[in-house]
Amino acid sequence: MSYAIGIDIGGTKTAIGLVNSEGQVLAKTSLPTDQTLLPSEMVDRIAEAVNGLLNDKGLQPSDLLGIGIGAPGPLNTKLGIIAEPPNMRGWWGFPVVAAFKKHFSSEIVFENDATAAALAEKWVGAAQAAEHFIYITVSTGIGAGIYSHGKLITGATGNAGDIGHMAIDPAAGTCVCGQQGCLEFVASGTAIARSASELLGRSITSKEAFDLAFSGQDGRMEEIVNRAFRYIGIGCVSLINTFDPELLVIGGGVSQVGAPMFDAVSDYIKRYALNPSGRDTQLVPAALQQDAGLIGAAALIHIPYSF
């Protein structure tokens, strides 16, 4: 049995897992991503947590095939740096691979977090039988991992699939990236919470917005939620028309609302995908959910040995 560490760095939390060659998470932990610390100090904490997992399992760093790291983009996988993720300004330009190499001599592989999650779904999740699929995460932000012709499509610097900043509705307002009406700005969990809070005049979460919408007690909230689902549908149709996938896998916190979102998005695809075969593109929930990122990061190491 071989082992790899998967590290999923997020704006608020970093998940760390020990994953074997069958995709099983043998041990995991998480740390707050403390953005008051220097990134190098945060890496020190992550490395300490990795060593703690290994010690608990009676393993040494030398027992690892390697360490996979997933992080939000923009990044540059060729240079091993986190470039300019909007929610991690303190990490801009940080050489994350070099920082981990100060702690570990194992192979280190670095990819966009959504790309890594797509690989996880291909390896042991909902896309095992697919050769052409797109994994979409709809959560605090929106991103995608693209798998086509039997391999990941990562782009020149590892940023392929940054669909959250695809303009959907320019009249909707200005995104954090400066563009008007990006998909993430209009349809993420953050967007739903923002619209609902502005409507009610008080701060509420996206979960509270969904609860109000589905209770049938607030038609205005239902309108906000349905509008977000339509925007997600628009994004999915754009992906279908561009990449011709056989399967779309949707994960992330917003996907947890289940049938209301999947039904609405499926209906939109059936109406508006250009190719008749595209209108029948299968839409399924992600199988791995909260562990997709760390399993995917570990898969960056395991996949060459598993397939």
Rank of each mutant, 00 (worst) to 15 (best):
S2G: 08
G11W: 02
S21V: 12
S21L: 12
A27H: 14
T33R: 01
D34K: 10
M42H: 15
R45T: 03
D56S: 07
D56Y: 01
Q60A: 15
Q60P: 06
P61S: 13
L65G: 03
I69F: 07
I69K: 00
G70T: 05
G70R: 02
P74Y: 00
P74S: 14
K78F: 10
L79V: 11
E84L: 10
G90N: 14
G93D: 02
V96G: 13
K101F: 06
F104W: 06
I108R: 03
V109S: 15
A118E: 03
L119R: 06
L119M: 11
A120M: 05
W123G: 13
V138R: 00
V138H: 05
S139I: 06
T140H: 03
A144G: 10
I146V: 15
K151F: 08
G155V: 08
D162T: 08
I168P: 02
A172G: 14
T174P: 07
C177H: 07
Q179A: 10
G181F: 00
C182S: 13
A187L: 01
A191E: 03
S197I: 05
S203V: 04
T205R: 02
F210V: 10
F210S: 00
D211K: 01
L212G: 09
S215A: 13
G251N: 02
G252H: 04
Q256I: 05
V257A: 13
Y272V: 06
G278K: 01
R279Y: 03
D280P: 00
L283R: 01
V284W: 12
L288C: 08
Q290A: 09
L294P: 01
A297S: 15
I303T: 07
